[in-house]
Design a binder for these strands. Sequence first.
DNA 1: GCCGTTTTCGGCCCGACTGTTTTCAGTCG
Length: 572
Amino acid sequence: MHNVQLARAFAQLADLLELAGENPFKVRAYRRAADLLASLNEPAASLLRDGRLIQMPGIGRQIAAKVDELLATGRLRALEAAAARFPAGLLEIMELPGVGPKRARSLFEHLGVSNPRELDEAARAHRVRAVPGFGAKSEADIVRNLAVLEKRTGVVLLSLARRLAADYAAHLAACPGVERVMIAGAVRRWEELVGELNLVAASRDPAGTLAAARLHPLVAEITGQGGDFFRATTPWGLTLKVTVAADGASFWWIILRETGPRDHVRRLEDLAVSLGLEPRPPGFSRAGGPLPVNGEEDLYRALGLPYLPPEVREDGSEVDRALAGWIPRLLDRGQIRGDLHVHSAYSDGRNSMGELAAAARRLGYAYLAVTDHSASLKVARGLSTEVLAAKNRAIDEYNAANPGLRLLRGAEVDIRPDGSLDYPDEVLAGLDVVIASVHSRFNLPRAQMTERVVKAVQNRYVHILGHPTGRLLNQREPYALDLERVLAAARDHDTWLEINASPERLDLSAEHVRLAAGLGVKVVIGTDAHEMNNLEYMEYGVAVVRRAGVDPATVVNTWEGGELWRALGKKR
DNA sequence: GCCGTTTTCGGCCCGACTGTTTTCAGTCG
């Protein structure tokens, strides 16, 4: 059993116990364990075996024993017992905004609704407003939010999809006859949300491979199949498609097709026909026979195109741009010189600054901005000005003693509803990097929210606008905001916009990055890491920039130290 | 359920917002 599955079991256990009214701290302990398991970068099984798992923060004897039970038996009795008390559909109802464990349970007990569909019926029949604590407003909210919930079923965050795909790829690679495996589809294109895992194998024994490939916990129910593929539902809501290439030469053709998206492939096929080529496996053929194919590059070359990496494949218009001379020069992970948005244990991060710095060194970074929350964000243990001053001194001491990597004195400062910042100017002036972010009052009217954010962008002490639209993928819509006005203000005041690389945000999006770059606004990738493993989110931010197709020089953290210090200092 | 130089029990993230109420419970960040 893989870490994501372990994490899911604990998260479900936490949800169910919450529903049962269990001690909230116990619930949180399980939730923390789920988060930890999901963030491990080695198998929990090996950590458990050599005793390191139980040493991790938040893992005690009980949780370690439950991990052991899951790994040994594939089951968790505590979870089964909790699941027997409440229908699974109640957990989906709890995902509705404004509906938590208490209200979900109340709906179940008063109306007998046990899943979103039944709740929808009850709400439309105005039976919800009769339940104590509910009224006409919440009834209407439920109907509206159920529609949103419906829309997002079957789609998961890219980060989860990548883990599931990697786990499944390992299984597929071990199936009989398999010579190589590649992940295609939306995961390969780094789409923010993924509805289908798409894997391709080259095999000497296609039938044997397809038969064995089904024997995996990810395969719930087969919903379609043909001679060289099957499609299945998974326990995670998204679908799985596995295609097998019977001969090695066709592998790249199938990879291209399965990577998609459909419109891009169609445009390539149309182009081939217009060039007198016939698009068919293993690639493109002319009268004399097929053109040689030893990789995807050859397929593009046959059409007179530069290689178009998966991230830029869209609706086909990129093919025309390439025909007109565009050659994608995309940001590369190796160009990133540092991370400008990280939380330490001073606020709500898990690791000390020393641990974060060591992790940044391992990534080869030249700088790392430690940007803990400001005072008013109590939930995240925001720093008082006194603690911030002490932290700044600790950073100076670190830098004096440790050449090579420079820690930057930073803060992620709350933008108050009136657009003012949560630290006084003299405190902001003492920082190397100031990120300004909205963390409260998300529901301001559009004009007011725009005013608020523009004011922050215009503030002479602000370098970066953090997670500019505030969206949480699959969870929360962006706040009402006139982004074009914000971008114009950013351009006028030389304020940078963040690409928050946390997989649940990816904010700015690729489209917005393109818009920003077009206006001459610089962007910064920040991982918003709350623990050192999350520094790896940088690759998600890089993918956003690649999908936007903008010049790497637009991205501030490709700059070398000296250039960055100068730019940061100019703001004072 | 976890944790510990305020340590083996009793804390654990806390305040604002919302819609429902007539004074507050539940949810959320």
